[in-house]
């Protein structure tokens, strides 16, 4: 996991969000425009330039009580504004494992 500090020199090639894991349960969360965390990628603050991405990441890093290891992750914004994860890792973080999980109640 790359910390925001390590990402300070990153060049933003497209839209990005700030993502992390929630402290309580490790769930994937995204930084929202109002400075909170949300599990909905569609509700995340999307940055399209390095300065705003860095500002979002730095603010997120301050919130150690609620989120672990915030970092800048690529997204794509579809026509109509729908936000999608920018790579497979982020797709899996958002959607969960790509495999069917065992069903607890059967064998």
């Amino acid at each position: 996991m790359t910390s925001p500090l390590d990402q300070k020199k990153i060049k933003i090639a497209g839209p990005v969000v700030i993502t992390a894991n929630r402290v309580d349960d490790g769930a994937v969360v995204y930084r929202s425009p109002d400075g909170r965390w949300t599990t909905e990628l569609g509700a995340a603050a999307v940055a399209i330039d390095a300065d705003s991405a860095r500002a979002l990441a730095e603010a997120a890093a301050e919130d150690d009580l609620n989120a672990i290891g915030p970092y800048i992750a690529p997204v794509s914004v579809l026509p109509g504004g729908h936000v999608r994860p920018g790579n497979l890792r982020e797709l899996i973080r958002l959607g969960g494992p790509t495999i069917e999980l065992p069903t607890p109640l059967d064998s």
């Binding site: 894991n21 490790g26 994937v28 672990i68 890792r89 899996i92 969960g96 494992p97």
Partner: peptide, 19 residues
């Protein structure tokens, strides 16, 4: 988290992608 991480790891608690 920086302080806690080594303590949880000593007890076998990792952070993975989703949990």
């Amino acid at each position: 988290e920086e302080e806690f991480k080594p303590l949880r790891l000593m007890n076998g608690v990792y952070l993975q992608l989703h949990a």
